[in-house]
Design a protein around this nucleic acid. Structure first.
Length: 795
DNA sequence: GATTTTACGTA
DNA sequence: CGTACGTAAAATCT
């Protein structure tokens, strides 16, 4: 084993510390070799951060390559907190090197280096902030992701580059950055009142607002305001969930706050939450909420985390503070407010630099209908709900009883493990594997619905049919029928304008959630933490469960949905003339008129694919057309198609080839998308929303990119209409739900036709591809509940 | 008790 | 080698 020495000029301002040598490092005795993956990536990241590697000291914590490149080898315990003696020695060496060479800043590359320098774990939360080392007290450090982690998760490269830039900026001297913020976390009531009066009478610029809330119910316990990035006050209303002030005195504070919020423009981070709570609990309308840093983050960097802690690490040079949430909540809140202000100033520039102001304002305008929909909720017909619930329960019990008889014992079919054992061991059925995302992934045994369906098809075993039915009903019951409703008999959902959920309840606290953060401009829907009633997500309720949502007496559920929206966009984007022709001809026709004329995209696909005259395409052939169209639009493979159609792989392959022969435009368009990506890694949808893709160059990136323009155009189109309906006709149109390409309203029967014409007018928005204008048709359907909608053709 | 995995609902 | 989203129950970890 070669000892890998620290490399670079001894007078370096920046010292980079990695984890351990790899194969190439072991061979050459030098750290981060450019011909090894991690070294290559490190060099790329440094170049982008404008750091000259030759001017840096480069070291590793461990000086010899561990077996299998596994750093855990050097630890006594699995959690990697107790180093073995050899690692202790190396850390002592590192300490000595830092003390001797005195770099201005040490960059910890990855979790192991962070731990060695500070004793702390959790690179994701600790990265991006300038802190002091505990290994060498007084030594300035910053942590970022290890280059090898960036290799595995390419999108982290953006973050690593930003962190390295911060390191460069902080490398001019050894001293810690000056923190000039004045955070007043414990003002007296009079002091806070004075501050509110000052804001009301003298302050003119926007203020940043942040609230902390306690569960259950999201009552405000702390409220912070910043009037600039360096000055904030936080006032505590509740301690141990009890008011600190007597009601009259507390009311005075809220009254002044309401006056301030009525006068000054407000900046917030995920202000959707704050304004909903202020309105719901206090009746305070934050009418000048104009700026949101989370929305700014989403618009500027759609594939990057959007929590305040993350954005602050990228935008500002302030100390970390999120760890103070539990111990010093008011100071934490105060820093939240100040940092929100600071991030906002930076993002203002970024918005203009990236020319995304229109998209930003567009997302801001969605805040109001989203808030209204969350607080309003949807009524549940409890009588109906209970009937359905009882019926499903009876059927499940019956099926379970039969299955127990059939198996000769009790089997929990909702347990993947038990079901697999039953199918593949007890019943000796052929083992089914999950479709892999990549051929390099391991094959995984599965007993999911797709596997069961396939087994049912090949073996015709009636047990499988029962299992499928029981599983489906259990899901329906647990997720969508057996739900808790509010005392008012309603359910609520939180619509997330920036796509993925950003906050959720954890141990009673509201925390940021950063697991997923990619969004193409469509809203997501999740459990409202203010009004936690219902199944949470209202965008995935199955048709059978929708019947429990009924319109009040004398009212109807009205659905307005864009017809074949994504397919229309695809047709015009790829320049498929027969498809465009069909959509042009059918535009403005009613559903029945389209049917009479065989204006049907899937029939058309079957027609071009099999050469069958349009009017002679059978239902079965149409289904094949539909499956092919679906598969090809999103560049799915033959595996998906064969599963969908229940045909063999070779048949599916043939169908796909046939499709591409008759519709070469699609593949050409895919190539054009690749070319567009190659130039700037940016795609812009038909409504001007840009999206910068951060994933590694390859098929996954391409597939994601192919779906971007159609999906996000339709999402934006619908939200654009929704905002118009809310702003222009909010008083007379009762909006109920948003479902990506459909808007649901509740109407009085006598106002049906007028509402339809207003909706039609608001939803008719022109789109353009290469100067050619087109529209997407709108269909209407009505019914007594969300689940019983019938096509409605008004005059 | 907390976190991860598996499965599954919608567009 | 569809994508995107959120949630429930089981499995697994600590």
């Amino acid at each position: 084993m070669t000892y890998v020495r620290t490399e670079g000029p001894l007078t370096a301002k920046i010292m980079l510390v990695g984890e351990a040598p790899g194969e190439e490092e072991d061979r050459t005795g030098k750290p981060f070799r450019p011909n090894a993956p991690a070294g290559k990536t490190l060099n790329q990241l440094l170049a982008q951060a404008e750091i000259t590697r030759a001017e840096c000291l480069v070291a590793n914590v461990a000086r010899e390559r561990p077996p299998g490149n596994k750093i855990s080898f050097y630890f006594e315990d699995k959690k990697m907190t107790r180093p073995k003696p050899i690692l202790k020695d190396w850390i002592a060496t590192l300490k000595k090197e830092i003390e001797t060479y005195k770099p201005n800043i040490v960059v910890a590359l990855g979790g192991t280096a962070l731990w060695a320098l500070t004793g702390e774990k959790g690179i994701k939360d600790k990265r991006g902030y300038i802190t002091e080392s505990t290994l060498v007290p007084g030594q300035k450090i910053i942590a970022t992701y290890h280059p090898q982690k960036v290799n595995y998760e390419w999108r982290l490269g953006f973050t690593a580059i930003m962190d390295l830039r911060k390191a460069r900026i902080n490398s001019e001297g050894p001293s810690m950055p000056v923190d000039s913020r004045r955070l007043n976390a414990y003002p007296s009531r009079l002091e806070f009142l004075e501050y509110l009066k000052y804001l009301y009478f003298e302050h003119e610029a926007p203020i940043a607002l942040d609230i902390e809330t306690v569960m259950p119910g999201c009552h405000i316990d702390i409220l912070g305001i910043a009037d600039n990035p360096n000055h904030a006050l936080s006032f505590t209303f509740l301690s141990n969930k009890k008011p600190r002030l007597d009601p009259a005195k507390e009311r005075e504070v809220w009254l002044w706050l309401a006056k301030v919020l009525d006068k000054l423009e407000v900046i917030a981070h995920n202000g959707l939450y704050d304004i909903a709570v202020l309105w719901h609990h206090l009746g305070i309308l934050c009418r000048k909420f104009r700026h949101d840093t989370m929305i700014a983050g989403h618009v500027c960097w759609p594939e990057v985390p959007r929590s305040l802690a993350y954005m602050t690490s990228i935008c500002l040079n302030v100390p970390p503070w999120k760890h103070t949430a539990a111990t010093m909540p008011s100071l934490y809140n105060c820093a939240d407010a100040a940092n929100t202000y600071g991030v906002w100033e930076v993002m203002q520039n970024e918005i203009d630099k990236l020319s995304v102001r229109d998209t930003y304002e567009f997302e801001m305008s969605q805040v109001w209908p989203a808030t209204m929909l969350q607080l309003q909720g949807v009524e549940v017909d409890l009588g109906r709900r209970n009937t359905i619930k009882a019926n499903i329960k009876t059927r499940i019990a019956q099926l379970n009883e039969e299955l127990t008889q059939d198996f000769g014992r009790e089997v929990n079919i909702n347990s993947p493990k038990q079901l697999q054992n039953l199918l593949y061991i007890d019943m000796s059925l052929p083992v089914q594997y999950k479709r892999r995302k990549s051929k390099y992934d391991n094959r995984k045994i599965t007993a999911d619905a797709e596997a069961l369906t396939k087994l049912l098809r090949t073996t015709s075993n009636p047990l499988l049919k029962k299992i499928l039915e029981a599983k489906k009903l259990t899901k329906l019951l647990n997720s969508f029928i057996d739900i808790e409703v509010s005392p008012e008999g309603r359910v609520h959902t939180s619509y997330n304008v920036t796509g993925a959920t950003m906050q959720r309840q954890k141990k009673g606290l509201v925390v940021d959630d950063e697991d997923q953060y990619k969004s193409f401009g469509r809203w997501s829907s999740s459990q409202s933490i203010i009004l936690p009633y219902g199944s949470g997500n209202l965008q995935n309720v199955p048709y059978t469960a929708r019947t429990i949502y009924t319109a009040p007496k004398g009212h109807l559920f009205l659905q307005a949905d864009y017809v074949q929206a994504e397919a229309v966009v695809v047709a015009f984007l790829i320049g498929d003339e027969p498809m465009k022709e069909m959509f042009r001809k059918s535009y403005g026709l009613t559903k029945s008129q389209r049917a009479e004329n065989n204006y049907d995209i899937h029939k058309l696909t079957a027609h071009t694919n099999f050469g069958i005259p349009l009017e002679r395409v059978t239902e079965a052939q149409r289904d094949v057309g539909k499956a092919i169209r679906h598969a090809t639009n999103y560049s799915a493979g033959p595996g998906v198609l064969s599963a969908k159609l229940g045909c063999s792989m070779s048949e599916a392959k043939k169908l796909l080839e046939q499709f591409h022969d008759t519709c070469p435009q699609l593949r050409l368009w895919h190539l054009r998308i690749q070319e567009e990506l190659r130039r700037t890694r940016m795609l812009t949808n038909l409504l001007g929303r840009p999206h910068r893709f951060l994933e590694r160059w390859g098929d996954n990136l391409f597939r994601s990119a192919y779906s971007y323009k159609p999906q996000s155009t339709v999402g934006d189109l619908l939200n654009k209409s929704l905002v118009v309906i809310y702003n222009e006709y909010g008083e007379e149109i009762h909006l109920a739900l948003q479902l990506h390409d459909a808007i649901y309203t509740i109407v009085k029967e006598e106002e049906l036709d007028r509402t339809i014409s207003l909706l039609k007018e608001s939803m008719t928005v022109p789109l353009q591809v290469d100067g050619e204008e087109f529209f997407i048709d709108i269909d209407f359907a009505i019914g007594p509940s969300w689940g019983e909608l019938q096509n409605y053709e008004s005059n």
